[in-house]
Design a protein around this nucleic acid. Structure first.
Lengths: 191, 191
DNA sequence: CGGATCGTTGATCAACTTCAACGGTCGTGG
DNA sequence: CCACGACCGTTGAAGTTGATCAACGATCCG
């Protein structure tokens, strides 16, 4: 079964046969390293599920720095959820960090899918709740942890990211400069 | 019509008659200043809508400081959404900052309400999406604004909070110490 | 009236940023 | 396949930002 199929099976009680049908609503796509799936100020037409590879969600601040606010590895959903649901212009861009294989579904296909398989409402609702919970947790971290502690926590909890993500991008996600990240890395090597 | 009724009318296309019936599913409640509606590690049984007054959502960090992460003035919903939906223990506490009048609905009543008025699904979905969008926006602010700029933005955008919220609590919401907030206030008085 | 908590002030200190410079590596065109 | 330029990660010095601590007057509440 496809990665997407497995993910749906894990989070719902839908039968294998139905999942096969559900997966046909999605369109497989391939993106080269550094390719953009969505750019700021475009319409955000689709939801993306990562089969293989890695994406990131980011925006540009007034100084022109790219600030990364979310990653998606294998088995994660990503999109500018607000723009997708409200049909407003995207506030964020989405870019492939590695060559990446995804499953995409646009608004129309999603509506048809939900009409034929209303059980999928619950699945997407879960995805939404998780996104919110993750965002809240992040706010909580910003309050309780120093930048150094945040790096420690993150690198032990998500070693995969540390290995696969370029430092510059990682630094922007963690909320500090590449220079300071370099210093923290040196520090934690010594131990 | 009650505050709650007006709010539902604003955000849906439900008839006035139906809204009257909908409002009967909610229980009016009164809380004194400093009273707690929900405490950390309790079950979060209800959603709260503020008719009059002001509530806050907060948690305690390891040093025992109370960190406020959300306020609710008149016309706002508040709860530990994650705990309410997942039926896990609350990570946050909710407390009245002023004497406050609310409308409360528990899980059972909510289910009955949604059964009789399925149009309300859309209303609550909106509330949820807003909470998520607000949380994302906050993450974005943390990235782009210095603490001083964050205070400036906040005090011009939400002057009501500056007037009604004690400084200590305001400081914890903005993410800095009361001492530093005091300094910023002095600075902005001079202009 | 008395105690506790709150907001303010100033001094000191730690955390983190900025800037400039250097070597390494990646990818692109010849 | 090599050479060149661009970008990336690292280092160190200097500068800012914001936290911590201690002390004091004001205010709130019993």
């Amino acid at each position: 079964m496809s990665e997407l199929g497995k993910h749906i099976a894990q989070h719902t009680a839908i039968s294998t046969d139905d999942i096969e049908k559900i997966v046909t609503y999605f369109k497989p796509q391939f993106f080269d390293k550094k390719a953009c799936l969505l750019k700021e100020n475009q319409l955000c037409k689709s939801l993306y599920f990562v089969n293989k590879g890695c994406l990131r969600l980011f925006f540009c601040d007034e100084k022109g720095n790219e600030q990364t606010i979310q990653f998606a590895l294998e088995g994660w959903w990503i999109t500018d959820l607000t723009a997708f649901h409200s049909e407003k212009l995207a506030e964020f861009s989405i870019q492939a960090i590695e060559a990446t294989e995804i499953m995409e579904i646009d608004r129309n296909s999603l509506e048809e899918l939900l009409k034929e398989f209303p059980q999928m409402e619950r699945y997407f609702n879960k995805i939404y709740q998780r996104a919110y919970a993750a965002s809240l947790l992040r706010v909580k971290y910003v309050f309780t942890l120093s930048k150094e502690a945040f790096y420690q926590m993150f690198s032990t909890k998500y070693p995969k990211f540390i290995q696969r993500i370029p430092q510059k991008i990682l630094a922007s996600f963690l909320g500090f400069t590449p220079e300071y990240l370099s210093e923290l890395r040196k520090k934690s090597m010594k131990k």
